[in-house]
Design a protein around this nucleic acid. Sequence first.
RNA 1: GCCCCGAUAGCUCAGUGGCCAGAGCAACGGCUUUGUAAGCCGUAGGUCGCGGGUUCAAAUCCCGCCCGGGGCUCCA
Length: 626
Amino acid sequence: MEVQRLRILQLHSNFIEYQPIKKEIATAEKCEKKKQQLEELVVLFTCVEKGDDEAVARKAVEEVKSSLQQLKVNKVLIYPYAHLSSNLAKPVAALKVLKAMEKHAKEAGIETYRTPFGWCKQFSISIKGHPLAEQSKVVLPTEGEEKEVVSKALKAEEKLKPSWFILQPDGKMVPVESFNFSGHENLEKFARNEIKKVRAVQQVPPHVKLMRRLEIADYEPGSDPGNFRWYPKGSLIKSLLEQFVTQKVAEYGAMEVETPIMYDFQHPSLAKYLDRFPARQYVLESGEKELFLRFSACFGQFLMAHDAQFSYRQLPLRIYELTKYSFRREKSGELVGLRRLRAFTMPDCHALCADLDQAKKEFLVRSELCREVLKNGLEFGKDDYEVAIRFTNDFFEENKDFIVSLVQQMDKPVLVEMWEERFFYFILKWEFNFLDNLNKASALSTDQIDIENAERYDITYVDEKGERRHPLILHCSPSGAIERCVYAMLEKAYREQQKENVPILPLWLSPVQVRVIPVSDKFIEDAEKIANEIERHRIRTDLDDRPLMIRKKIREAETEWINYMLVIGQKEIESGILSVRDRKAREIKEMQLQEFIGEVKKKVEGMPFKLLTLPRRLSARPRFFG
RNA sequence: GCCCCGAUAGCUCAGUGGCCAGAGCAACGGCUUUGUAAGCCGUAGGUCGCGGGUUCAAAUCCCGCCCGGGGCUCCA
């Protein structure tokens, strides 16, 4: 990484006279094109380089201040001057630093002026002739200091001191320390994890091996960390999950939309929102514009809602997008396999509600939706996740019954995080958290009640009296990130394997549901006919036509987690009765073809279907891993 | 991002200063025509992550970077 430094040319002057002539960049500050004159001052020609931040600005002011004391002057002009460097910061960042310098200087009691940023200016300067009159300063960032721009929300979160409780479905709320966790071991692990007392063992989470061995997904060294490649099988699984969640959300009544993945930093609503969201962004430069990649669908949907017109009669208004992708520039040390990515697919569903009453009702409908998505999609029941509910003190006092009814819906004790003060844009939030084999918790489904953004984005509806009002906004991801769902299923499968159960994916998600295995190449054609018939019923079927021994083919099908294996030989062809190896049930059953097809179809009824795009014959398939 | 650890054939790994760097699996070729978790023989495959340095000599020691992992921290 290049070393960044703030460069200042410091000139002790008799006077300076300057006049803005012409804007140099689109993002120039507003100002009058009037001639200005200042006398007996120190002029700071300042150049902000890439990576400079407010800490550097503060340090620069400190250094300038000590010079001022020497020179016995207390007046400065901060003059943006790009020509001192070839490694300039972007305009937005530079202006931030200059403003920070101005602020710190004023706070330090210095009479401070600043010329407008982004203008081509004419100036005349008279410099004093003493040895200290002309100095140049290079301010380096302090070692170890936070160099990146961090949102206020992220900083605020660091200072949060919440209290922790366990809330039971019967409405009893007890402090975490005095809760009896017996029978709720996962909740205990989760609570400790959240309150941060655990030390995890040094280990790679097991899903990483699985995601590669099963040819689902893999790291892509050619990209940025946390941006994955998806092999055909993984792409199928991911796509099916996406289809399923989208279908459930449509049934719930949301309108599906699509919005851009990148946004203008300069947009006023967005700038304010960025500061309230605890996440880091990817930024990219395009021409003179500075853009950031979305980290959720909020921007696009809110801007859309801002331009839409609707009244209380249309509320709650539900808007949905499957973001492919959302981007968060997570710190590199936080990225692990599919648990946490920098580019991820997130179903994001907002509901605009007239008032808190409506929001609360809607909230319960949506939590039911989330539970269903996990239950039917991932086959995750309430034992597979722990619930956290987070809210402010005030909200709890005023909405106790509602929160208890939410917990009753969850049907198990939940972890409560309660804040004295509201730091975020929401007043209430819950998530379902999955605990992996290293006892790390990751949120899947989540929902929140947002009371700030309707105003920030100026989203309004017309109420009964014809007046414009800001709705409340619910933010929900019914499944959480799709990649994270895959992670959770793999981790769960591994856990089952440790318990000597069969590791397996839900049948509807298995890339290969049925594998037909001819005993020798004499039976390949017969096997093909059977495979055709099964696939005609929308069951993913392939054919192991390789010249290998049966037991080897069976072994490979087992390690690929294929649900059913049909061995085809003389016996089957003559009798018409199939030998079906049911992997999950760990048994070999004899049955008619149509009977078998019926059994499989029944198990995947109502779930989305897609064909696997790998060649049916294994001999024609590439190997992506191993 | 910081601290610590790692990287050798497509995969899993052996090799810690000294001849042309090894094994198993996979791939490819041949034999075998196979009945429910690994048949036999052979062939090919390596810029030892990348770049620099130390040395008569570097996969091996040193520095920087990339990628991965763990921790701190944080989230969907």
